[in-house]
Design a protein around this nucleic acid. Structure first.
Length: 327
DNA sequence: GGTGCTA
DNA sequence: TAGCACCAACGCGGA
DNA sequence: TCCGCG
């Protein structure tokens, strides 16, 4: 997350979308009143507040977006502990992370007790309904990040994630090739994987595990695979976070595979100027797209209506486990 | 965005 | 009751 | 231990 500045946006900064024509007083009153998101009965306050200045996207458009993609989004994100990025002002101006329960988020935004590393327990957010998702939008949640585990079994990883994060100057072709390389390496260990564009710069390769794995094993396996690829192709890949010499290379980020770590949820918006979406795609689609932020708030609801089949349809059906650790 | 304290 | 301050994560690795 | 990153 590039700009999670705490700097409070001053009230004067709050922009509203101007009505297309000069509004009659009655209309103006109607604009000011909270809008309900159709069929979800969630009141959206400040519906015309601009959230994405570059795209002139308003808060109510964000809420309508989440209402539209809710069934798809929930398929993977439901009942997983969430970290949300809330932007009460404009994106990249005053956003903050939240992962713990707050009673005022809405009656359909739930929380589950989960043990933290320090042995204490805390209540983590989760949702299991479209209504909960829209209530999060009302609370200015823009990005949703999820654990690779569910609240029902937080100690086991059922989704392994490789985040391919390109350094400066890496062409799209090489990012796409990296995803295929990760897929091929996984296939060698009999693991099938699924793909999504992050909505930002990179691609995510996701591996379902059923039965779910111990976090230690998941992390160790992911690290080994990332380091192996980096050793085989050091001109293309690095497996070390934050390395300055990432320039012209792709960081294979395996660090999401730790208990408590999160990755962007499918269909989540990104809090970046172009309103990109983290979209699951089929492997065969990879050659037809030209960037990881090719899909936006404006495209995705229509695209979902046209989609015959969910590219991740079978991710929850397949039974596959990590290979036995070489001893 | 919501809460709770203060003037 | 209007205004205001304050709150809303965390773990990792490198320096 | 602090800082930057994601």
């Amino acid at each position: 997350m590039k700009a999670l500045q705490k700097a409070a946006a001053s009230k004067a900064d709050t922009k509203r979308r101007k009505p297309a024509t000069s509004a009659a007083p009655a209309q103006r009153r109607a604009e000011k009143a909270p809008k309900n998101v159709v069929s979800m009965k969630v009141a959206i306050t400040h519906p015309d507040r601009i959230v994405y200045p570059a795209m002139e996207i308003t808060k109510s458009e964000v809420a309508e977006y989440y209402a539209a993609v809710a069934p798809w989004l929930l398929r993977e994100a439901m009942r997983r502990p969430l970290s949300i990025v809330r932007c009460p002002g404009e994106i990249e101006k005053a956003c903050f992370f939240q992962k713990h329960e707050e009673s005022s988020l809405g009656d359909a935004v739930h929380s589950a007790k989960i043990k933290e590393k320090n042995r204490k327990t805390a209540r983590y957010l989760y949702i299991d309904s479209p209504r909960g998702l829209v209530q999060l939008a009302q609370m200015n949640a823009i990005e949703l990040h999820v654990w690779g585990a569910t609240i029902d079994d937080p100690d086991h990883c059922d989704r392994l994630v490789f985040d391919l994060d390109p350094g400066a100057g890496v062409a799209w072709k090489r990012i796409a090739a990296a995803a295929r390389d990760v897929r091929a390496a996984l296939k060698k260990t009999q693991l099938q994987s699924w793909l999504r564009v992050s909505g930002g710069k990179g691609l995510h390769v996701v591996v379902p595990l059923r039965p779910a794995a111990e976090w230690n094993a998941a992390h160790a396996f992911a690290e080994m695979l990332a380091r192996t690829l980096a050793a085989q192709s050091p001109q293309n890949y690095v497996a070390v976070a934050g390395e300055k010499n990432r320039e012209n290379r792709i960081f294979i980020d395996y660090l999401r595979n730790a208990r408590g770590a999160t990755s962007i949820a499918n269909y989540s918006l990104r809090a970046r100027d172009h309103a990109g979406v983290a979209l699951p795609i089929g492997w065969e689609e990879l050659r037809r797209i030209s960037s990881a932020d090719a899909f936006t708030l404006h495209d995705v609801p229509g695209l979902l209506k046209r989609r015959r089949r969910d590219p991740w349809q079978d991710i929850g059906k397949i039974e596959q486990a990590l290979p036995a650790q070489p001893s």
